Amino acid sequence: MNSAALPTTKKHVLRIAVGAVFFVAGLIFASWASRIATIQQELGLNDAQLGGMLFSIPVGLMLSLPFSGWIITKVGSRTVLAFALVAYSITLAGLGSAAHVYQLIACLVLFGFASNAVNISVNTQAVAAEQLYKRPILASFHGLWSLAGFTGAGIGTLMIGKGITPLYHFCIIMLLAMAGTLFSYRYLAHDKGPADDTPAFAWPDRSLFKLGIIAFCSLICEGAMFDWSVIYFKKIVLAPGAWIGAGYTAFMCTMATGRFVADYFAHRFGIKITLQLSGLLTATGLFVAVLFPHLYTAILGFMLVGFGVSSVVPLIYSTAGKSATMPAGMALAAVSTIGFAGFLAGPPIIGFLAGAFSLRVSFTLIAVMGLCVTAIATKAKLN
């Protein structure tokens, strides 16, 4: 795609289309996250067993890594994104229909496989869109993903309140996701290039590896909020039934808000300071929720976590895309792969720690990851 020749109107249309698929992807994941506690109860799983089940998602991620990178170089991120989103939505419905543990495991593996393909291809589209503008816009795309998470959490809370089963809930989301994908597909960037011998994945150099580790640490915290916030409010905070989703909703609200202002804040104060502050906010929020596990203090803590994690991944991806040592696409794929592994591996680790100790201990250890973001960002070379 020749970005220089692209008319201004079409640039805006591309941005809207990419934003729409970010929203669809976020809605799918948030729908699953909002019903984890329900599925856990229906299948009679304890916290440790649930943690084991959630490890199926990283398994799908690892299986997807070589395939996703390879297929994007062959057919382009536009085509991969369309097929991956359809598969993502179908496996969501499969999660709702799982009546046995082995069925849930199989669906979670496929869910992880599709989610990674979506993650890599949609961020490739985002980088292509950002290159058409003279200012950072990547964080706003992630803001739409977070806004979708907030929307999905609200829908999930409504579905729980109405007694609607996960299967019917997820089928509704599947149809909405397919409609959104169909609408956006024709406007996405045609990025299929001539075949060459460029590897689909390359190990990042030292600077990019540090970016990946920062994303990894932050996404462990973010993944914990997605998969365990409802359970934390139910079992530790002992929130009333109508309030068990309040922490998750508060987290998603502040994360979405933070991402819509992240580009401006980073431009004003610099990426390093933004990442340092992000790590401190994340750790502070988690410590508040652990030390004061009461309804309003826990909500406040989860709000701080949302602000903390909001800017990390968009800024890391944007910085990686400007790498001077690797092509933007390869750098993005390498860094996002390292980071997304934390997003998927964190929740099952919390489950095992909760089974061995308690959820409060798990969340304390996750808070340390926020401090790691600050520490690594302090030492990394960031512009």
Results as ranks from 00 to 15, higher is better:
residue 6 L to Y: 04
residue 6 L to V: 04
residue 11 K to M: 06
residue 25 A to P: 14
residue 26 G to Y: 13
residue 46 N to C: 14
residue 48 A to G: 10
residue 49 Q to G: 10
residue 52 G to H: 12
residue 63 L to F: 12
residue 66 P to Q: 11
residue 66 P to L: 02
residue 87 A to D: 01
residue 92 L to P: 05
residue 95 L to K: 06
residue 96 G to E: 08
residue 100 H to D: 11
residue 104 L to G: 03
residue 104 L to K: 05
residue 118 V to W: 00
residue 120 I to P: 11
residue 121 S to P: 09
residue 123 N to I: 04
residue 125 Q to V: 05
residue 125 Q to M: 11
residue 129 A to C: 14
residue 138 L to G: 10
residue 139 A to Y: 02
residue 151 T to H: 02
residue 152 G to R: 04
residue 157 T to D: 14
residue 157 T to L: 12
residue 158 L to F: 13
residue 159 M to R: 01
residue 160 I to Y: 10
residue 161 G to S: 05
residue 161 G to F: 04
residue 162 K to P: 07
residue 164 I to M: 15
residue 165 T to Q: 13
residue 166 P to H: 01
residue 177 A to W: 12
residue 183 F to R: 05
residue 186 R to F: 13
residue 189 A to R: 10
residue 189 A to D: 10
residue 191 D to H: 10
residue 191 D to P: 12
residue 195 A to Q: 12
residue 202 A to E: 12
residue 205 D to S: 03
residue 212 G to F: 04
residue 213 I to Q: 07
residue 213 I to S: 13
residue 217 C to S: 04
residue 223 G to E: 10
residue 228 W to M: 12
residue 229 S to N: 07
residue 240 P to G: 07
residue 245 G to F: 07
residue 245 G to Y: 00
residue 245 G to Q: 03
residue 245 G to T: 06
residue 247 G to H: 01
residue 251 F to K: 05
residue 254 T to L: 03
residue 254 T to I: 06
residue 254 T to M: 14
residue 263 D to Y: 05
residue 267 H to P: 04
residue 267 H to W: 02
residue 271 I to L: 15
residue 276 Q to V: 11
residue 277 L to E: 10
residue 285 G to M: 09
residue 288 V to H: 03
residue 301 G to T: 10
residue 313 V to W: 00
residue 315 L to T: 06
residue 316 I to G: 06
residue 318 S to D: 05
residue 319 T to A: 10
residue 321 G to D: 05
residue 322 K to W: 13
residue 325 T to C: 11
residue 325 T to R: 05
residue 326 M to N: 08
residue 327 P to V: 09
residue 327 P to M: 09
residue 329 G to V: 01
residue 339 G to C: 14
residue 344 L to M: 10
residue 345 A to Q: 08
residue 346 G to L: 13
residue 363 F to Q: 00
residue 376 I to Y: 15
residue 379 K to Q: 09
residue 380 A to V: 12
